[in-house]
């Protein structure tokens, strides 16, 4: 049992860490789940779980990575429960069997990817992310939106660094294809 003083110290420490890292963790929840409502649920569940295990948090490691790990496990458990598919199905095969990107882009003045970059496509970024297999999505969000190193991502995802590299790359290839498809789709049909 811990005394009230120790408990309030623990609370203060948790709140302080959360205030510093909460935005990053919430952003991860949003990008992973695809909408504010699920992000909010995921975020709250993560904090509940994190606080219940706060004693096991290694103070020498980054707090955000610790929360990322808890969050992604809750998310993947939930996905698996809903899809009732084995965990291995979360990794998808390579998206471009034998079709190089330059071939897809050939013959256009402004490439679809360039058009996508120039236009205001914030919601479409979220749509493209949502279409990724969860493990690819997690890796690329942590890399490109949260700015984590491959080593830190490997720690969060409990996998080798080589697997992170492969997932990040596969995710980018799939996103490239999605962005291209979306930028070629009439605006009124893009979000359907």
């Amino acid at each position: 049992m811990i005394g009230p003083e120790e408990e309030s110290f623990r609370q203060a420490e948790f709140v302080a860490l959360l205030k510093k890292n909460g935005d990053k963790v919430y952003n991860f929840a949003f990008r992973l789940s695809g909408n504010e409502q699920d992000a909010w649920d995921l975020f709250q569940e993560t904090l509940m779980k994190a606080y219940s295990r706060f004693e096991s948090y290694d103070r020498s490691r980054p707090f955000d990575s610790w929360l990322f790990k808890i969050l992604q496990n809750i998310y993947l458990d939930e996905r698996r429960r809903i899809s009732r598919k084995p965990a291995s199905s979360l990794d998808a095969p390579s998206p471009f069997p034998g079709k190089p990107w330059e071939e897809i882009l050939a013959g256009t003045d402004l490439s679809p990817l360039d058009r996508f970059t120039k236009e205001e496509n914030i919601d479409l970024v979220q749509k493209a992310l949502a279409d990724l297999p969860p493990l690819y999505r997690t890796a690329v969000i942590l890399c490109d939106m949260e700015g984590l190193s491959y080593e830190a991502i490997a720690e969060v995802m409990s996998c080798p660094v080589g697997t992170v590299r492969s997932r990040v790359h596969q995710a980018r290839q799939l996103l490239k294809k999605s962005f291209e498809d979306l930028s070629n789709t009439p605006k009124d049909r893009q979000l359907q």
Binding site: D23, Y26, N27, A39, F43, T117, Q126, R172, K176
Partner: peptide, 19 residues
Amino acid sequence: ESLRKVKTILAKAPQKSMP
């Protein structure tokens, strides 16, 4: 170059803040 563009698109996406 196309991978770089994808990375840039993601990096430019606005960050959500904790409500």
